[in-house]
Amino acid sequence: MHLERLRFKEINLADPFFDSLKAGYKEFPIWFAKKAEDFAYVFKNPQGTIDGFLYLKLENGPVSDTKPPLPSAHRLKVGTMKINAHGTKLGERFIKKIFDHAVFDKVEEVYVTVFSHHSPLIGLLERYGFHAAGTKESPNGTELVLVKQMKAAHADVVLDYPLIRLHDKRAYLLALHPQWHTRLLPDSILKNEDSDIVQDISHTNSIHKVYLAGMFGMEALRRGDVLLIYRTSDYQGAAHYRSVATSVCVVEEYRPIHSFETRDEFLTYCRPYSVFEEQELQRFWAERKYPHVVRFTYNLALRKRVTRKVMIEEVGLDSSARWGFMSLTHGQFVNIIRKGLTDEGLVIYQA
């Protein structure tokens, strides 16, 4: 899927994709022209025409043109979001991009206005914790105002996303070899620039992931368990410095491979979110070499890599243990994410 970050002046307003926006918002062409130097995310299909558009804007203060008004806050407004759905996961990718910006800019909430007849879009937003907070009247009609409070907890993995609920949850380290890590998570998380996390537009930058592994003990995983992703050494230097913690994820579901009755059921479950190619998945099914199938949400990238050396010498992890899949204490996990300069406001410590 070809997602680009472009200035408005680089985007073809004559593309038929924008026809419905022009019809729904009479002022849209004038607004579009005024945004010439601003950036938006654009998804183009293989034919080169547009199938998705996302514009985000930071705001400070109250929002007075809604009923009821929204109180003063540091907000991210989803100025425009439109998707032509063709069975892709583009909507979820846009949601991920919205939350990437929200986390990076440390906003208190995100809001969007949408007409009630756009029920698929409303359903998508509600799935990730947006709720109706009022209406907005304009010459174009009445729109719903949907708000996502970034630190509101719902006690649900997906509704809470990207929040991480640590209270009464177990934490584990999950090691990935570099070749799988590169496929599973955006390479930007291994760079030093914070803004790379926001600007990354790779196809791997999605909310949900499915991973297969064969490490002992993974059958203990349950919904809500927290995973610290650990990229093993690429052997370009000492493992003490080249092996690093990179990300935090939350388990949605664990399934043993034998719980799938047929190959097609297995492929249907894994294919949309897996890092593995179709032929790899078919081979895994035939060989049963990787019996553990884990689906999880990709919540946070650590802004600073935490090396194996630091985790041993400063956090107290056992250097003699097998760092494939292993349990972490509450204190060890918190210590590591603090060293990774993660926004602790996104971690719920108490009920």
Rank of each mutant, 00 (worst) to 15 (best):
T113E: 13
D194C: 00
S202D: 13
L212Y: 02
Y235T: 15
S116P: 04
E126C: 13
L124S: 07
P186L: 00
V210S: 01
A152I: 09
H177E: 14
S202H: 07
M215G: 05
V114A: 08
N192F: 05
L227M: 13
A133C: 14
P162G: 02
I122C: 08
I122R: 10
L159S: 07
D168Y: 00
K191T: 14
G134N: 06
K191W: 04
A153L: 11
Y128A: 04
H118M: 13
N205D: 15
H117T: 10
D200S: 08
S138G: 15
L121R: 07
G217M: 08
A132W: 00
F130V: 06
L125R: 05
M215R: 12
T113S: 10
Y211H: 06
D200G: 01
M218V: 08
D196N: 11
L146Y: 00
D196K: 01
A132E: 14
P120M: 12
L166F: 01
A132G: 00
S116H: 12
R231K: 15
P162N: 06
V147W: 01
R170A: 14
A153V: 15
H167A: 09
I197K: 02
Y128S: 05
E126I: 03
T113W: 06
E137S: 14
L159K: 15
L221Q: 06
K169H: 11
S188Q: 03
F115A: 09
A153M: 04
G129C: 11
L221F: 07
Q179S: 11
S195K: 06
K136V: 08
P139F: 04
I164Y: 00
H131P: 00
K148L: 08
H117P: 01
W180H: 11
I207D: 05
R170T: 12
R183Q: 13
V198K: 04
L190T: 11
P162L: 03
S116E: 15
L184M: 13
L176V: 10
E108Y: 06
I201W: 00
T232M: 12
H167C: 10
L173P: 02
L163M: 08
R231W: 07
G224C: 10
W180D: 11
R223C: 13
A213T: 14
Y111H: 14
A239S: 13
L125K: 03
V112H: 02
E193M: 01
L227S: 09
R231A: 08
D187S: 11
E137M: 13
D194M: 04
D225R: 03
H208E: 13
Y128I: 05
N205S: 12
D160G: 02
A239P: 15
L184R: 00
I207F: 03
A133L: 05
L159C: 02
K136F: 02
S116T: 13
N140I: 01
L124Q: 10
P186D: 04
A239R: 02
D160S: 04
N205H: 12
I229R: 03
H131A: 14
T113K: 08
D194Y: 07
R170D: 12
